[in-house]
Design a protein around this nucleic acid. Structure first.
Lengths: 204, 204
DNA sequence: TTTGTGGTGTCGGCCTCTTTGACACCGTGG
DNA sequence: CCACGGTGTCAAAGAGGCCGACACCACAAA
């Protein structure tokens, strides 16, 4: 099976490529040092781009962090959506699988590691806790859309409610894990399962 | 398993992206009409780029065709290499698999269809028959390299000989199929198999 | 306290690549 | 014969990226 690039005019693709190159460079650097030990100049040169270009594209250091986190969140959602799609017949299993894949991925992710390893004052942590608005709303929106396509008969408001709370739980567990991913996933699924079942039952 | 983008400075990546976008656009258009019914302007606009940019990058219409064909050939080689790697223990099976995957892919490929559907005067056919030099040498080189890594003990000159003739046979069968891919692949493998076996035996 | 160091954010000029519109050239069909 | 459409080329204008420099701020050493 071959993957096809979305047919997109070159100008847009080039811009996306620029952003992705910057993000990937940052991710690579974050694998070795923390966010606070990381210069904007470092990121730019690692991406093969001038510092100025970086600033032109993102405006400021925190803005870049924000954008980067949003993209990583989107990455995760991709994996999660896949897990949901596979278990579309069993909501509880879907939640378990999605949570598990998310937590497992999060544990390996340089960004997440950088966040939990940070001292809290390094700016990244704030973006998923204190000022988590953008992350939450984006992740919630995408997860809602995913659930909507999987179970179209359930009212969107209900799905939105479920999504938001799942996202919040996921972020929380990723930031400070309490147990193994499997155990966490099962317990979350146990909580949400019955509610989801009732939604599915009521919808048909 | 996640696929990683090669860490490449933005400038190079952008250029590659431009070429790929152009190629993909051409491929898309070739799906519906023949090469001769296809304007350079069509290709450019389909890629979201000005006609001038296309000319600057490739120089002329036949030069673009040449480059496009070379890239498609490279695509095929990727699939072929995979087939070879999987069957590294059995040269005959490797040839069979490689040939089969190549012919199957070729039958589905818009470029190949455009070539065989063309009236012969449309310029594309010449590039793989009359003026096939670049295609053959590139494909031969890459296939040789692939075989070299798979069976490092066999002299490179022998591998090169095998490669070139396999490539020529493959192009020929792709351009004018005589039978089903499987049958063709088996017969070619039957021809080359014993020779390959002897090479392997002699090398150790 | 002063001073030096290092990172952030901004500015202006330069350079490269893309776009735009125009043009000459040429083959084909009315 | 001539209008049409596609190829190939050009100069000028625009956009995006690069470079060097600078002010600003925090922090640490003298």
């Amino acid at each position: 099976m071959t993957t096809f690039r979305a047919r997109v005019p070159y100008a847009e693709a080039a811009k996306a490529l620029l952003r992705d190159t910057l993000f990937d460079a940052a991710g690579e650097l974050l694998r070795h040092r923390g966010w606070s030990d990381l210069t904007m100049a470092d990121v730019a040169t690692a991406a093969g781009v001038s510092r100025q270009t970086l600033y032109k594209e993102f405006g400021s250091r925190p803005a870049f962090a924000q954008a980067y986190i949003l993209r990583e969140a989107d990455r995760f959602l991709g994996a999660v959506e896949e897990a949901v799609r596979v278990n579309s017949d069993d909501p509880k299993a879907a939640v378990t699988a999605a949570f598990e894949v998310f937590l497992a991925a999060a544990a390996e992710q340089p960004l997440v590691k950088a966040i939990v390893a940070g001292d809290g004052g390094d700016g990244l942590l704030n973006l998923v806790t204190n000022q988590a608005g953008p992350v939450l709303s984006q992740a919630t929106a995408r997860l809602t859309a995913c659930l909507k396509t999987t179970w179209p008969d359930i009212p969107e408001a209900d799905l939105r409610f479920v999504s938001e709370n799942l996202v919040r739980l996921a972020v929380s567990h990723a930031a400070s894990p309490s147990a193994q991913p499997q155990g966490t996933a099962r317990s979350v699924a146990a909580v949400f399962g019955p509610y989801l079942d009732s939604l599915v039952a009521a919808a048909r």
